[in-house]
Design a protein around this nucleic acid. Sequence first.
DNA 1: ATATTTTATACGTTAAAGCGTATTTTATGG
DNA 2: CCATAAAATACGCTTTAACGTATAAAATAT
Lengths: 79, 79
Amino acid sequence: MTIRSSKDLGATIRRARKAQKLKQVDLATKASLRQPLISELENGTTNATLDTVLKVLAALKLDLTVVSRRKASFDPTEY
Amino acid sequence: MTIRSSKDLGATIRRARKAQKLKQVDLATKASLRQPLISELENGTTNATLDTVLKVLAALKLDLTVVSRRKASFDPTEY
DNA sequence: ATATTTTATACGTTAAAGCGTATTTTATGG
DNA sequence: CCATAAAATACGCTTTAACGTATAAAATAT
């Protein structure tokens, strides 16, 4: 999933969390964060810091990557 | 490039900037940020917000993506 | 070597991220 | 329906990101 806004990130996090059958409070605990912050993140209503983003993604076993914009590559190992 | 820390991001940004022959001040201008912030970002000495990260990556024509975590591939240059 | 350019650091200020906690609103199950 | 669970919002507080600006340090010419 390409992330170009806080909302993109929020949607990605929410989908991954639900796919893993976690509640916001569960994810918050795994990431050492608060449940309200997970809510704000998923709704894209906070401009999270990189540390926060990395904590949440790590808790979901996801990685952040940087790729060239023109290289629209299909990655079969996604999903 | 997989990003798991501010330093990872900083290194990635610096490499991309140099590959495009930009000075920090050029990148700062393109991203509507300050030169000192670019320096801090590249050195991993600030916990940047997502907006800041996205601005810089956009200025470098890079995208942020979220992918499922895979096993680290063996990199011979690390040894 | 030294002038010039580039990068890093410093400092005070402002805005907001994240915290703990409590409560409200919404979704779900019986 | 209603009860319970889950998610969203609220509040005051502390910390810090990012700002503008100035300058120091380092790198790169000349």
